[in-house]
Amino acid sequence: MPAISTENLTVQYGDYYALENLSVEIEHPSLVVIMGPNGAGKTTFLKALLGLITYSGKIRIFNKPPQEARELIGYLPQRDTINMNVPLRVKDVLLLPLTSRSLSIKKEYVSLAKQNLSRVGMAEHWNSKFGALSGGQQQRVLFARALMTNPKILILDEPFSATDVKTKMSLINMLHQLKKEMTILIVLHDINPMVECTDRVLLLNKKLIAYGQVSEVINEENMAKLYGTHIPVIQRGNVCYVMGGDRHA
């Protein structure tokens, strides 16, 4: 059974089509990178999968509609959606997805939160103020929070924004481990750091441009279709590198 399948998925805001007739099947477990220019509908696609927006067509997540599959998904939003006026500590941020469902904080929630915080290398920040952390540290805490419900699917919207190279590499190593048991969808502008652990790439520009393995999909022809300009691609064996990265995003 695929983790995610969509049939003719269309999202429309008034007369504007953010996504048109997107049909795709994503296997479980796997790591899929979603690429496309700004305004290509990448975040819209994620929001449709999360059941946050209305759409036409069909979405199935482990054969359930998005609204019934929420407990299966861990979500890392773009950091600018977080309200920094709320003076939460790191432990509060981690515990919110679980404690917002019950009146008390159970011991197992705390031990799971500590475990996830250790996984992202932030164990010493358990009592730190979330707002006082650097952008990269906040991103790691939010990453740990996405794991709190033991999801089968992890949806990450630009997870490497504001992270330094070291943090990025440690998160990528984590994703490498997690993809053995989870389906991971990541919106990225620059695929290069992820090339070696990516199973499939979904190129999106309101419509599906291409979907397949890195070596099949990442080529100059598809990059031209995606970004509307020539972007050099270097191929070394089964690995491809897009020259330009964020410059063309």
């Binding site: 999360l50 929420r70 939003p77 919110l96």
Partner: peptide, 14 residues
């Protein structure tokens, strides 16, 4: 708290 801190994730969690 969850709704005010991160409404998008709160909605995504149900």
């Amino acid at each position: 708290l969850y709704v005010v801190f991160d409404s998008e994730s709160a909605e995504a969690s149900g």
